[in-house]
Amino acid sequence: MTSHATGAPATARRRDARNRGRRRWAYAFVLPQLVLVAAFTLYPIVMTHVYSLYEWPGFGPLDRFVGLRNFARLIGDELFWNAFQKSFVFMAGTVALQLPLALFIAILLNSERLYGRNVYRTLFFIPVVTTSAVIGIVMRSIFASHDGLVNNGLLLLGLIDRPIRWLSQGDTAMLALVLVASWKWLGIKMIMWLAGLQSLPVELYDAAKVDGANYWQTFRHITVPLLVPVGVVVLLFSMVDALTAFDLIFTMTEGGPGFATEFMELYIYRYAFTSFAGGLPQLGYASAAGVFFGITVFLISLALSLLARRVSRLRR
């Protein structure tokens, strides 16, 4: 600084000038991201709601206001409820498979003396970082009925005596998707559980040992209750992940066979970007489906976050 302070008012003036300057800098700093977020996150949210009230093929003027009629049509559409239900079956399947298995592996990996622990952690995490769309396509080949890797393996082990037509039957296609999705995203849940396990207080375990508790008792009465808050977060992530797993499903089954694995996002895609049903794309209708689905996911996330907060407060 070049000038010396001459008195209180001058200092105050200078501080004001400095603050004004800093505020101007701050606005300049937040502006670039604010523009992008406004354009590509906030504006789309608003517009999806607006489009949902119109009948609109995605081009031309937005002038056929239909009120809530898109929503009425949605509720009356069997395929919509099919997609809604399929999304939740898939979600329940992946959550039920991933959460316990990831916890089990995390517990095995939690011991510090375990030889090769970082190597194992890396191996389990590899599928997470690989490209879903590519994995989906490769899995078509792995689950192929004729000479696919899965069928060959099961035949070799004698678990089946003739190849399963995995992707051409509804139930097995769903099962294949659940297996692949669980395989792919288990790593994230494992890392979350591990973080939770490592935050548990060591003193409690020492005390339990002194009291003569065995491994199972310690697990049941100390580990499980203390892990509940982490568990709720893992659950939240798994559910939202499963509901938004478009890439994998689109590339592996494309919603088929028939509509057996057509989840919500595929339903929306079909109406928005293809000329399904022999006509023009129906962006207004697809937006209504998007709004409905978005609100559902939002409510689930919100409920679980509130639950997580509640649980962690109760623990304290």
């Binding site: 996150t41 949210i45 999806t48 489009y51 939202v240 509901l243 938004t244 998007g290 978005g294 996911v297």
Partner: peptide, 9 residues
């Protein structure tokens, strides 16, 4: 906010 839901706009 789930992605995909905003792809249309």
């Amino acid at each position: 906010i789930p992605k995909g839901y905003t792809i249309i706009p």
